[in-house]
Nucleic acid binder design. Structure first.
Lengths: 145, 145
DNA sequence: ATTACTGCAAAGGCTTTGCACGGGT
DNA sequence: ACCCGTGCAAAGCCTTTGCAGTAAT
């Protein structure tokens, strides 16, 4: 999503498109490794725009509400944020503390094989409804050891 | 795993099989919904065995190290613990704050369709190694709305 | 002028840690 | 007697919140 479109979305929600929000959003879309709130704050500060920790968190929460970002819970660490809100597969490199996107065609290939008949069976046998299937990969840089 | 076998594992690791550890382990295997540390402490206390919060956490960490339990990270909430350390699929019921196991045959059916060729492709295209595939379901009680 | 945004600091939830005491072997 | 296990309280990390000041419309 382009920043100019973000501006429109803000307007539509009766929310102000302020300097810090602009700066936070810019850093978020420019950073490929899905930064934490703290990393994002550092980036914004380095860019010459002062912003407080609270504002970074509040701003990111706002982005998520507006559909401009997605929050990625990280077990045992700070959550990360992603400006790409489309459904896509994440690969966690735990040793580096990074999260990367898996190319869509490969992600699609993984998801497409998950037969909905199996999910239907799970629903009927367990007496529940499945809302979402969470899938993510955990790996590390380098070849198979 | 039977408590009697747990005792053996403790011995093997040169760790004492004390009253609290016994009580914590007993409550853990008896509780089907994968309790949090706090819930587990309450259960142990109700059972008439006094135990502190710190000990519950330390004990659970010990169990995980010994392979007697698994820690389940819960986004935005307290982590949960599972005495079943075999690979199996979890279903999170977020509205109830519960986690249930998916019957093995169904979980197996879901996993088996994930072609390893796709994972190989991801590895070569991204220049990484995939260590684990994380999969879990999020749902709610009741029929499809 | 009105309303929303921001910063600071405080508090919050969950978890770990330091240290002195007590209990197992 | 030794060492491990335990409790308590303090500190830790990440995040949210209250409130007073500031800026946008």
């Amino acid at each position: 999503m382009q920043p100019v479109e973000a501006k429109r979305i803000f307007k539509e929600h009766g929310v102000r498109y302020t300097g810090r929000r602009k700066a936070v959003y810019k850093c978020l879309i420019e950073t490929r490794t899905h930064p934490t709130a703290e990393e994002l704050q550092s980036l914004v500060l380095e860019g010459g725009c002062h912003v407080s920790t609270a504002t970074v968190y509040n701003t990111l929460a706002l982005f998520c509400r507006l559909g401009l970002a997605r929050r990625l819970p990280i077990p045992g660490g700070a959550d990360r944020y992603d400006a790409d809100t489309t459904d896509h597969l994440h690969l966690r490199l735990d040793d580096l503390g990074e999260i990367h996107d898996v190319p869509d065609d490969l992600a699609e290939a993984l998801f497409s094989v998950m037969d909905s008949k199996i999910l239907d069976q799970i629903e009927s046998r367990m007496g529940i409804s499945v809302d979402r299937v969470g899938l993510h990969l955990i790996g590390h840089r380098g070849s198979h050891e």
